[in-house]
């Protein structure tokens, strides 16, 4: 196993090509759940869990199930690839359901605080996006690399949303022009954060 490559993949997706700030994935929760640091961190953890499990399961579906059934039944490994998108979204929806039930049982306050944003993790493009990138990238074609990529993506998301929440807690005390209040100033701050993350360009690949 190539640890160097694993570290490169992890840093690459968590910092250099951060899913939120460089890939524009998961902007909705990034704007919606970044008001308080503890909530943002909780959201980040939930997303990290869903992203890692979904990344592994969708990898198994494409490389295991689809290739096997395709080869056995249609004599063409790619015969079922047109079902990819439908399969990916089904996996993600079931994982989110799982997290929702777990939080409801063991962390009711967190569950209450998330409200509608918890089921909306299903439509968090960071998760589907990570699964699609794993499917496309040449270096994530083996299971361990794919899992590392997915986990790194989740960590990058948590990092971005927590930093954003920290900044927004301070913005509450500043005098923002009225039209920019809410989404406007958040986008501008995200732009500056994204500039800062561009400083990582050149690390890894």
């Amino acid at each position: 196993m190539d640890f160097g490559l694993l570290i490169t993949i992890f840093i690459g997706v968590a910092l250099v090509n951060n899913l939120v700030l460089a890939g524009f994935l998961g902007i909705c929760p990034f704007l919606g759940v970044s008001r308080k640091v503890d909530m943002a961190f909780g959201m980040g953890c939930a997303v990290t869990f869903v992203i890692t499990v979904s990344g592994v399961v969708t990898w198994l579906i494409v490389h295991g199930l689809f290739n096997w059934v395709g080869t056995a039944v249609f004599e063409n490994a790619g015969a079922l690839y047109f079902l990819k998108y439908v399969a990916f979204i089904m996996v993600i929806a079931s994982m989110v359901q799982l997290v929702e039930m777990y939080l409801k049982k063991f962390f009711p306050p967190l569950y209450e605080a998330f409200g509608v944003f918890l089921p909306l993790i299903t439509t968090n493009c960071a998760i589907l996006g990570a699964c699609l990138y794993i499917d496309m990238k040449p270096e994530t074609q083996n299971l361990i690399n794919a899992a590392t990529y997915a986990f790194g993506g989740g960590v990058g998301f948590t990092l971005a949303i927590t930093i954003m929440a920290g900044i927004r807690e301070h913005i509450n005390f500043s005098d923002v022009p009225k039209p920019l209040q809410g989404a406007g100033i958040t986008m501008l701050v995200a732009g500056i954060l994204s500039l800062a993350f561009m400083g990582f360009t050149g690390i890894g690949k």
Binding site: L21, A22, G23, F24, P177, K178, P179, L180, A183, G184, I185, T186, M187, L188, A190, G191, I192, S194, L195, M198
Partner: peptide, 25 residues
């Protein structure tokens, strides 16, 4: 160049949303 890179997207959208809110108000 920054405008076609990721930060440009956030900054432009922030300003556009601000302008739209201003016109609406």
């Amino acid at each position: 160049v920054i405008m076609v890179l990721p930060p440009g997207a956030f900054l432009t959208l922030g300003v556009v949303i601000g302008v739209v809110n201003w016109i609406r108000s």
